[in-house]
Write a protein that binds this DNA or RNA. Structure first.
Lengths: 144, 144
DNA sequence: GCACTTAGTTGTCAATGTCAACCATTGCGG
DNA sequence: CCGCAATGGTTGACATTGACAACTAAGTGC
């Protein structure tokens, strides 16, 4: 890959995430979900981690722990998550989805799946899987 | 691609761009380039467009024209670009790189190439090209 | 001439990222 | 056990990026 193609690759990444984020926002608001993309990402992360804690979310998503604290505070005031005292470490809190949170996650997954379907329309499934693996490899290269 | 894999794909995009941007910022500041990633993206775009105008940059990058105006104003105060009266439309300005701008672009290209090299280390070149095409296809799907 | 569009600038605010200070705990070496 | 560094979390402050709308000036077409 020469320098010119590399350039195009990096630019394409900016374009893709920009467009993807915009599509997500649009589709979420279209069905009446008022959360920001960040809130939704965190909520999904919590949903995927049993006995979740804030630091685990922050570490797992490579997001500043301060930002996570604020996002979670807002998710809590929206009654989408609950914080309980951690049984073994009173500094820490265990985060769990509320019933509302679980219901919302289902709607979120639907919207996200539809958005992704649109994004990958007409693209060969096998190449797509390859692409997904490569993206993960690139993340690994950069994050270590 | 089932729903679960789709989810992972979207999340990976967030992760990748986050890590890529951070790596870029780090490498730019390491060599003493103090511009933000946005400023650099715009500067590169200008470099790649002869007889460039603000609206062309905004349209080409899918970025708000107000934001472009501000970024360009700052690039101008840094003496990296110049605005001249457009010969055929006095509303418009032709944007050109200054000598300093052209010099900087070379350094930028080097840093960016190194960052990309690091990002794609150990990844099959052919698969990488496929991935780049797919990314462009996805952008096309979303932006139209 | 007049309505409409276009290029650019500016104001305002929301969303996101980064860094540092801080508190309350915990765990650990002595 | 004590002192102290490390950890989980919260908060403050600020920079970056994105979105939208109002506005000026100038072109375009009827």
């Amino acid at each position: 890959m020469d320098m010119n193609q590399t350039h195009i690759f990096g630019e394409s990444l900016f374009r893709l995430l920009h467009a993807y984020k915009r599509a997500l926002r649009e589709n979420f608001t279209a069905v009446g979900i008022e959360l920001t993309v960040s809130h939704i990402r965190v909520l999904k992360r919590i949903a995927g981690m049993p006995q979740c804690t804030a630091q685990a979310v922050a570490a797992g998503m490579q997001i500043d722990k301060g930002r996570i604290a604020r996002l979670m505070k807002e998710l809590e005031t929206e009654h989408l998550i609950e914080k309980r005292h951690h049984p073994e470490d009173s500094r820490s809190r265990q985060i769990t989805l509320t019933h509302q949170g679980r219901t919302l996650i289902e709607r979120i997954n639907t919207v996200e799946a539809e958005t992704s379907e649109y994004m990958v329309a007409g693209i060969d499934k096998e190449q797509l899987m390859t692409c997904a693996h490569i993206i993960n490899d690139m993340v690994k290269n950069l994050e270590t």
